[in-house]
Every structure is written in structure tokens, then in C-alpha cells.
């Protein structure tokens, strides 16, 4: 049985060569449809990343351990200006931190020298830095985690806290994402699936004569459908791979074509999830179409 199933799958794929012109036509249709979907994904990814870049900044509060050599800490502060998405940095030695605290309490009506006279000589506060960075990359939450981890890994750092992104544009984009982006993506995948499915269904219909002969020779439906499903899935997968290759080529050649001031618009390749969808959608729908095209 297992051997029969494997043989039928192999035959289904090999049968694609029986009608090279028909297979080439179907493959072209699947490839172009998937390519169009991929192009749309590419634009969505680019838009998402561009809007992500404009989501304002995140503030990282970094506290060093007590008694750290301030020369070491200062060297670290100097390196922050080279971080990607760097906006600003405010640093406080323990003394400056105490002074700042006194000023803030004083502003609130208190007086540090009068309240804590014993602290003035030996500040108990740690060295602190407030680093403002703009998110980079398509996933701001991941970026936040990775950047926090980077600061934590620095020598002498005791604690890092990051303020979440607070930006109206970011919030608005999140809403767009939930109300428009996902339905649009689902619709796109559905359209891709239907288009590919219909193409494959027509290709299978062209083999109606063969299907009829198999039925007349006593073949069960699964025996007829399995090779058709395998062949169709192979067609869908090949079409998906070809469309990805075209997308890659397009991205490689034209990715930076608009990347000049003031546009500075760089095209981003679709996310791994979108790439998986671009491969899975045509493969699965083609296989299903191959199965469903056979009438009982």
C-alpha cells in the first residue's frame, strides 16, 4: 500500500511532463499570481517597517551597580551615540543623580540639603543613563527586548527599564493592522488561493479523458485523486518558489531604486511568515483543486 501511494505520488509529479505546454501555462499563471501577491506583501512589509521607524522613540533607563569605576561607565556612555536609531542620551553620575533628585523634590516643595544633609558627601544613588532610541526593524517589541538585553549585558549594569513606545502614529498603525492589514492579507491569500486553485482545476479538467479511463478501468477515487493532488501540489509549490525567486530578483535589483533623499524609501523583502504563506497558499490550494476537480 505504502509503495502504491509513493508510486502514485511519483507518477503524479512525473505526469506533469506529459503535457509540457499545458503545465508551463499553468505554472506561469501560478507564478505570476503568486508574484503579484508577493509584491503586495513586499509593499505591506515596507510600509510596516517605514511606519515602525516613525513610531517615535523609546526611553531606556540604565542603572549601574554601586561603586562602579566612573571612567568605565563614561566610556560606555560615549558609545551610545553610535547605536542605531540613536536620538539622545542623558547621563547622571551618582552625585548628579542626587542633585537631580534634590532639585525634583525641591521643586515639589522639599529641600535636599535640609532633608538629607548626611547624603551630600556620599550619594547612595547609582550612575544612571536615559537613552532615547528610535525602533529599527519590522518588529518593535522584539527590538525593545533585544535592546534591553544589550544594555543589560554591558559591564556593571545592574538594571534596565524600558518605557513602552508611546506614539500616536504607532497606535494608529496598530489599529490599522488589526482592522485592515489582517483582513487585507487574508483576502489576498484567498484571492491567491482561488486563482491558483482555478488554474489547477482547469489544468486537471484537461485530463478528464484520462480520469474517465481510469474510472472505467476500475480505479477507486483515491487512486485517481492522489496523483492529481501530488502533481498539482508540485505545480503550486514550484509556482510559489518561482514567484519568490522573481521577488528576490526584484528586491535585489530595485530594492534601493527609491532610496535617495528626500524619499529614502527602501523596499523590504516580505517577512518569513509572508514567505511561508506565499509557498503554502498555492501548494495547498493547488492540491485541493487537484482533488476536487475529479468528479465522482
Amino acid at each position: 500500500m505504502k509503495r502504491t501511494v509513493l508510486r502514485l505520488i511519483g507518477r503524479g509529479i512525473a505526469d506533469l511532463a506529459l503535457d509540457p505546454a499545458g503545465t508551463a501555462g499553468a505554472l506561469l499563471a501560478v507564478t505570476l499570481t503568486s508574484f503579484l501577491a508577493g509584491l503586495f506583501f513586499m509593499l505591506l512589509t515596507t510600509l510596516d517597517i517605514r511606519l515602525g521607524m516613525a513610531r517615535g522613540e523609546s526611553i531606556f533607563q540604565i542603572y549601574w551597580r554601586d561603586g562602579m569605576d566612573m571612567d568605565v561607565v563614561r566610556r560606555q556612555w560615549q558609545e551610545y551615540v553610535h547605536l542605531p536609531g540613536f536620538r539622545s542620551v542623558r547621563t547622571y553620575t551618582p552625585e548628579q543623580a542626587l542633585e537631580e533628585l534634590g532639585r525634583r523634590i525641591g521643586r515639589a516643595g522639599g529641600d535636599l540639603d535640609k532633608t538629607f544633609p548626611f547624603l551630600a558627601a556620599d550619594s547612595p544613588l547609582p550612575a544612571t543613563a536615559l537613552v532615547a532610541l528610535s525602533p529599527s526593524g519590522p518588529d518593535p517589541e522584539r527590538w525593545l527586548e533585544e535592546t534591553s538585553a544589550y544594555f543589560r549585558s554591558q559591564h556593571g549594569v545592574a538594571r534596565v527599564s524600558a518605557a513602552p513606545l508611546q506614539n500616536e502614529l504607532g497606535q494608529a498603525w496598530k489599529q490599522v493592522g488589526s482592522y485592515v492589514l489582517w483582513p487585507a492579507t487574508t483576502f489576498l491569500l484567498l484571492a491567491l488561493g482561488l486563482s491558483v486553485g482555478n488554474t489547477v482545476r482547469l489544468a486537471v479538467r484537461a485530463r478528464e479523458h484520462e480520469i474517465e479511463i481510469l474510472q472505467l478501468a476500475g480505479a477507486y477515487n483515491w487512486y485517481i485523486r492522489l496523483p492529481l493532488a501530488a502533481g498539482s501540489a508540485a505545480l503550486g509549490l514550484t509556482g510559489g518558489l518561482c514567484s519568490l525567486a522573481l521577488l528576490f530578483l526584484l528586491h535585489d535589483r530595485l530594492g534601493d531604486v527609491l532610496n535617495f533623499p528626500p524619499l529614502s524609501l527602501r523596499l523590504y523583502f516580505p517577512s518569513p511568515r509572508a514567505v511561508a504563506a506565499l509557498l503554502l497558499a498555492p501548494t495547498v490550494t493547488a492540491a485541493l483543486a487537484g482533488v476536487l476537480a475529479v468528479r465522482k
Binding site: 474510472q215 472505467l216 478501468a217 476500475g218 480505479a219 477507486y220 465522482k296
Partner: peptide, 8 residues
């Protein structure tokens, strides 16, 4: 219909 192949 499921048993037609048996006849054939």
C-alpha cells in the same frame, strides 16, 4: 457509486 470499481 463506491462499489462501481468492484464491478469494473
Amino acid at each position: 457509486a463506491s462499489r462501481v470499481p468492484l464491478l469494473r
